[in-house]
Design a protein around this nucleic acid. Structure first.
Lengths: 200, 200
DNA sequence: AGTCTGAATGATCAACGAATTCTTCAGCGC
DNA sequence: GCGCTGAAGAATTCGTTGATCATTCAGACT
């Protein structure tokens, strides 16, 4: 079983190396296979399709992100700070990744197109950490009590959507983006601190 | 001069009729011209390019929107309500337009691609009305004083970006969208009421 | 002179066969 | 039996070619 996992990892690594250099479309299964010293057909014993390799790449990136999110969420900083840190960390990671390997954008595009649900999965995972922070903030008295922290997390994600899609912000510098992210977070945190009245 | 304006309007109307039915790509300059009883070449005395016809369509849509925004902004409702109304009105108008003439999305896509600055123009215009409402709200004491209302307007636009691009929400119902818009507005308005502390 | 046309031009697009690529699977070697 | 290959099949992309279209402009018409 460990053998199988290793091979999977090997394929994923080989694929990543090619894809960050040549792009998803220009990388063929045969090339990945020969990099791994195997036949193209054999890849299909580890990945159901080429798309699943792309998804595997994204999943790896996300799981590293979530690990850090978990760390931030249960950290000792103020809830406000933790909220900021999560979104700043995500923005920075994404921005750096794209700056370093521009071709990775193609993977994001293909996944957004062909696996629209995958994206929601990530949002749901992120919401777990946001919920933790919100609930902790309420318990500590930093944030005003709220009816449904899960819904508030969703609204926060909605308000910060702009900072999630490189296609939406690719023409801006990281500096400008972070300033803008802080501006929106200022408003959100002010709202959370003093209590959100539901629209009648 | 009025003659020239009339012909322009005639061309724009003919173009709109064709484009909402067949789409931007499938509508040819010759078709528009023959609908107007003129040659294709003659259109170029009124529009510099086909893209400018698309821009003309969008500009017409926007100017109707802005007229309503101005009306809302200087209305007698509470600043909070006026803020909500502007974004709800914009969302509804856009949603209805797309539901009625799905082909109009192609125009939006082409413009976003080929005339990226045009969008900013619209945002800047909208911000004028947002500024009015914010300043009025501060004057009336509904909103806490703020250092730079213009920057706050920008941040509000940023937080509500998701509700501006049909491509981002096309799979959601109007009902769900409005509920979500209200949820984000709840947070924003809470923040505005109680004062936004700038991130250190 | 000022308007407009329609042909000319270059760019873009559609069609379609060829080539490449993804995916499957019968069978080979262990 | 298990793991893998490499060829076959299906799907997609590619490249070419012909057609269509946006755009220009010389000249006709008023």
């Amino acid at each position: 079983m460990n053998d199988k996992t290793d091979t999977r990892k090997q394929i994923l690594d080989a694929a990543m190396n090619r894809i960050v250099h040549y792009g998803y479309g220009k990388t063929t299964m045969s090339e990945i296979a020969s990099d791994c010293g195997m036949s193209a057909g054999n890849i299909y014993r580890f990945f159901a399709s080429k798309l699943d390799i792309a998804e595997g790449m994204a999943r790896k990136f996300n799981s590293e992100l979530y690990q850090k999110y978990a760390e931030i969420a249960r950290g000792s900083e103020s809830p406000e700070k933790r909220l900021r840190n999560i979104f700043h960390y995500g923005l920075n990671q994404t921005f750096d990744k794209i700056e370093k390997d521009a071709k990775i954008l193609e993977v994001a595009e293909v996944l957004g197109q062909e696996r629209p649900l995958f994206f929601n999965e990530g949002l749901a995972q992120e919401r777990i950490y946001l919920n933790q922070i919100l609930e902790d903030g309420v318990a500590k008295g930093t944030f005003a009590p709220m009816e449904d922290p899960s819904f508030v997390s969703e609204m926060i994600q909605s308000a910060l959507m702009k900072f999630r899609f490189p296609q939406l912000y690719s023409m801006l510098t990281l500096e400008k983006l972070e300033r803008e992210l802080n501006g929106v977070l200022d408003i959100i945190i002010a709202g959370l601190k003093h209590g959100v009245e539901k629209h009648p």
